[in-house]
Design a protein around this nucleic acid. Structure first.
Length: 290
DNA sequence: CACTTGACCTGTCCGC
DNA sequence: TGCGGACAGGTCAAGT
């Protein structure tokens, strides 16, 4: 589900709401939501106070004053929703995708000492929450292998090109989606940035011109930034920390636009399959170079 | 080795 | 309405 902009939107919201909250109770229903639950998670969490919420790639890091960190991956359908006391029903029906909580997809509930709660919902159960000593977080396999953050200041065109080139014979979309090459890009922003740069997603990296790589680099940063500004994309499951939708999908040019005209040339956008994923392109402007 | 395809889950939508 | 199949924003393991 959420890609970098959605996770960043959740992070911003949680970082406004959670610091200073002290954990009173912990509930979780499913071992896979909490892979290290065999150690008594509640024992390590109860009494801990949240310091700040960070993000790396599509992972949220909730730092605690006990030198432990909750590491959370939302995968496809995960949600983290905060509700204040006496507000566990639905919000205004027009601004929320989430009804009363907990619901049937709730996997974890943190109840704070002021009675507010943080709900981790995950329909497809791909997501996970781990509790780790803060100092060990960078050492877990997933974190160690991650590529650079595409919006960090020191992420340059040269770094982008060099890292892509390591996978020269793969389809460029597959490489964009590879978290060890660049962190945080998922299916929506891969399609949007490839359209913006007029590159066919199945083109192998080595066949993409330098000029197009530069366009792609710029487009990728632009779509990610715009989406963060707009609060991310909401299709069905994604909501921010307050349970509300983002509006980026309204600005998407090709994603889920099959059958509609390309905003630049009017050609009908088609949906194909690349790297095992549904892929949206303008067949006139994004030609496959073999 | 590098790269591609299934599996993990549940829910929804579409065609018959 | 009911049922089968394809598909969904991510990541691994297992295949080729």
């Amino acid at each position: 589900m959420p890609e970098l902009p959605e996770v960043e939107t959740v992070r911003i919201g949680l970082n406004r709401l959670l610091p200073g909250k002290k954990v009173g109770q912990v509930w979780h229903d499913w071992a896979k939501s909490f892979p290290n639950a065999q150690q008594d998670v509640a024992k390590f969490l109860v009494g801990a106070t949240i310091e700040q919420v960070e993000r790396r790639a599509k992972v949220l890091l909730i730092n605690l004053d006990t030198k432990y960190t909750l590491v959370i991956h939302l995968k496809m359908t995960g949600q983290l929703v905060y509700r204040g006391e006496q507000n566990f029903g639905a919000g205004h029906p027009n601004d929320s995708l989430v009804g009363s909580l907990p619901d049937k997809s709730t996997r974890v509930i943190l109840t704070f000492t002021d009675k507010s709660k943080l709900f981790f919902n995950d329909q497809r159960k791909f997501g996970w929450v781990r509790l780790l000593p803060t100092s060990e977080v960078p050492n877990i396999d997933f974190m160690k292998k991650l590529g650079p953050e595409p919006l960090s200041e020191d992420f340059t065109l040269k770094i982008f090109s060099d890292r892509l080139a390591r996978r020269h014979s793969s389809a460029i979309k597959a490489v964009l989606l590879d978290q060890t090459v660049i962190a945080g890009v998922g299916n929506i922003y891969a399609d949007e940035s490839l359209w913006a740069a007029k590159i066919h997603p199945a083109t192998t990296v080595q066949k993409v011109s330098k000029a197009k790589l530069k366009s792609l680099f710029e487009a990728l940063q632009a779509v990610l930034r715009l989406s963060i500004e707009l609060g991310g994309s909401s299709d069905r499951n994604y909501v921010n920390a307050e349970g509300k939708k983002g509006s980026y999908l309204g600005f998407a040019k090709v994603f889920r636009h099959e059958g509609q005209p390309c905003p630049r040339c009017g050609t009908i956008i088609i949906k194909i399959r690349v790297a095992g994923r549904g892929t949206h392109i303008c067949p006139r402007e994004q030609r496959l170079i073999k």
